[in-house]
Write a protein that binds this DNA or RNA. Structure first.
Length: 315
DNA sequence: AACATTAGCAACCGCAACGAC
DNA sequence: CGTCGTTGCGGTTGCTAATGT
């Protein structure tokens, strides 16, 4: 069974839009407005799937689209916003959970669960006339390259560049703070998730046999959400997005986070290899208050505005 | 001038959230 | 409450123009 595809493969045009198609779409939307895209494409006489029409309108045909060179101011804003919202969103999980997962992984000391989530749409929203696609392309072609080039020169990392950048391998190699260098750190990138930024935490420990399999390496446990059985707790983050800067950054307000984490994780960090008893209290702490988002770990956008103001954002 | 390589960008794809029924 | 269609998002692909050899 399964849902019928929203964009049937047959009978529809694909690829570059023609001037005629553009005209048809633009004039139809001008007359009737946006929305109901699949229906719209049919009524406009376009042999395009609704998604394609929507994309074409939003990224190209919309009258308020500003096309052409990204100005210096815009570029600076993109960099700042990417620093704030970009590729290295870290969700801090309960230390209990992290200890438990670290234990499963053997010697690895897992200090944070990293969720790849770059909010191109949010960034674009701050740049009138620019689309998320345009910002994304600009970042991927121009700015990322520039950042890479600067990194290869070997310039000492500034406060802002001394933050985690995603690597080609897909594994975040967080730059380490003095606290973090004590033990091997591996931060796992999960698949990008959508903007609602609900953090999903398993509320039950895996079954015993499952745990054993994980320990024996029979299961790849990089994504605990999918592979652990049990209910899922959902935590809605502030303002739709829970933003924590790199836990290992030395810059600006991240020190604040480091302090908080150091305080919470201090026992474990001092002796990361010690046997970890996942006792009832830890389990309770984890399940009842998985991320402590309302507590000290949480930072809202007001707090992060501070980061933007203090960050040197030199790429 | 011809071919190869690179860069930039439009469009596609898959997934997840949301809302109507 | 579950199903299904719609919408929105971000990563990826592939085409084309520009540049290099």
């Amino acid at each position: 069974m399964g849902r019928s595809p929203s964009c049937p493969k047959e009978g529809l045009n694909k690829g570059a839009w023609t001037a005629l198609e553009d005209k048809l779409l633009a004039s139809y939307i001008k007359a009737h407005g946006e929305g109901k895209w699949s229906d719209l494409s049919r009524r406009a006489g376009l042999k395009r799937c609704g998604k394609s029409c929507r994309l074409r309108w939003l990224n190209y045909l919309r009258p308020d689209i500003k096309r052409g060179n990204i100005s210096h101011d815009e570029e600076e804003l993109i960099i700042r916003l990417h620093n704030l919202l970009g590729n290295r969103l870290l969700i801090s999980l309960s230390p209990s959970f992290l200890q438990w997962e670290s234990k499963l992984r053997g010697t690895e000391f897992l200090t944070a669960h990293c969720v790849m989530l770059c909010r191109w749409s949010l960034i674009a929203g701050r740049l009138p006339g620019r689309t998320d696609n345009e910002i994304k392309n600009y970042w991927n072609t121009v700015l990322r390259k520039r950042a890479k080039a600067q990194a290869s020169i070997g310039t000492p990392p500034s406060k802002s560049t001394h933050k985690m950048l995603s690597t080609e391998s897909g594994v975040c190699e967080p730059l380490r703070s003095p606290q973090a260098t004590k033990a091997k750190i591996k931060v796992i990138l999960t698949k990008a998730t959508r903007s609602s930024s609900k953090v999903r935490i398993p509320t039950q420990l895996p079954a015993a046999q499952h745990t054993a399999k994980l320990r024996d390496g029979q299961l790849n446990s990089t994504n605990n959400n999918q592979e652990m059985s049990g209910d899922i707790a959902t935590v809605e983050a502030h303002n739709g997005t829970q933003v924590l800067d790199s836990l290992y950054s030395d810059g600006g307000g991240s020190d604040l986070l480091n302090e908080q984490l150091k305080e919470r994780d201090v026992e474990f960090e001092e002796n990361p290899m010690q046997p970890l008893a996942f006792d009832e209290a830890m389990f309770k702490n984890w399940t009842v208050n998985p991320c402590d988002l309302n507590g000290n770990d949480a930072m809202d956008f007001d707090s992060l505005a501070f980061l933007l103001e203090t960050d040197e954002h030199s790429f």
